[in-house]
């Protein structure tokens, strides 16, 4: 049974790799190598990934690309994107994405960001509100409420079982076990370590938030979707209302029986929520 499961997991992964190959390029943006995946036609949709580092072309990318031109860059420090040593703060990350948007000729774009990516998207929109058309924030970190602490993901790395339980509504599912395996191979371990290191660059201290962000959020002009799993054990669902309170034109959508990594766990609902919102 276990062997069979492993072989299915392996086949799935190979499929994702193959799908990625056709859609991947590494470009030079202001002297920095940046990995981009791109697929589909229509309105551009800039997808900013989570700390998990979903930088393979996965089913949710594919489904979104049936309606939009999905552009999914890897953040510095993730996959083949370089330059993390020059990113010391959110400010540096925002400049990075300003350069990327200029490079791609994106004047005003729809952005969807998950978790860490949501935080980056929100920070970007507070600084350059005119460059964001519609904004979707899926379980973003970035705000802080003492009564609803974000789980210390940096401490979770020690305990794979806890890590899985914190990120998924159903940590026992085959999908959860594949995405966060008990025994990862060296490549996967190296990539995860690199991604967490890049995340720590921005999120170690202050932990997963910017104390100044809340009062800047009123600068966001674009209609904003705040999307959350109803069983998010990493970034408590209570944050959905907190984001909505600060962003003028915002609406909250919750996905039921869903943990933090909703683009994996509830792929269809995730995609449907975004397409309903972006139109």
């Amino acid at each position: 049974m276990l062997d069979k499961l492993k072989s299915i997991q392996y086949a799935l992964k190979v499929k994702w790799y193959e799908a990625t190959l056709d859609r991947l390029r590494v470009v030079d943006i202001n002297g920095r190598k940046v990995q981009l995946m791109e697929g589909g036609e229509g309105e551009p949709l800039l997808y900013l990934h989570s700390a998990y580092g979903e930088n393979l072309w996965m089913p949710f990318h594919q489904k979104l690309s049936e309606k939009y031109r999905v552009i999914a860059p890897a953040h510095p420090g993730f996959a083949q994107t370089e330059g993390i040593e020059d990113i010391d703060s959110m400010e540096d990350m925002i400049f990075h994405y300003l350069d990327l948007m200029d490079y791609l000729g994106l004047k005003e774009v729809n952005i969807a960001g998950v978790s860490l990516g949501g935080w980056i998207a929100a920070e970007f929109a507070t600084r350059y509100p005119d460059r964001v058309h519609r904004l979707a924030l899926a379980a973003p970190v970035g705000l802080w409420m003492d009564e609803h602490p974000v789980t210390d993901l940096f401490a979770l790395l020690l305990n794979i079982e806890k890590l899985r339980a914190t990120n998924f509504h159903d940590p026992e599912s085959a999908l959860a076990r594949m995405l966060v395996p008990d025994e990862a191979d060296d490549d996967m371990k190296a990539e995860a370590y690199k991604g967490m290191a890049a995340t720590a660059r921005l999120a170690w201290n202050p932990f997963c938030h910017n104390p100044k962000l809340a009062r800047r959020l009123k600068r966001i002009k674009s209609p904003t979707l705040i999307l959350w799993g109803d069983d998010d054990k990493l970034v408590p669902t209570a944050y959905a209302e907190e984001w909505a309170r600060h962003i003028k034109d915002s609406r909250v959508v919750k996905i039921s029986e869903c943990g933090h990594l909703m683009m994996f766990e509830k792929e269809d609902e995730f995609v449907r929520s975004l397409t309903d919102f972006f139109g």
Binding site: F154, L157, D186, K189, A197, A200, W204
Partner: peptide
């Protein structure tokens, strides 16, 4: 041996592991 992310190079982290 708790090692926070980015505390060592990826190579060293794997070697320690």
């Amino acid at each position: 041996t708790i090692s926070p992310p980015g505390y060592t190079s990826v190579k060293s982290a794997l070697a320690i592991d």
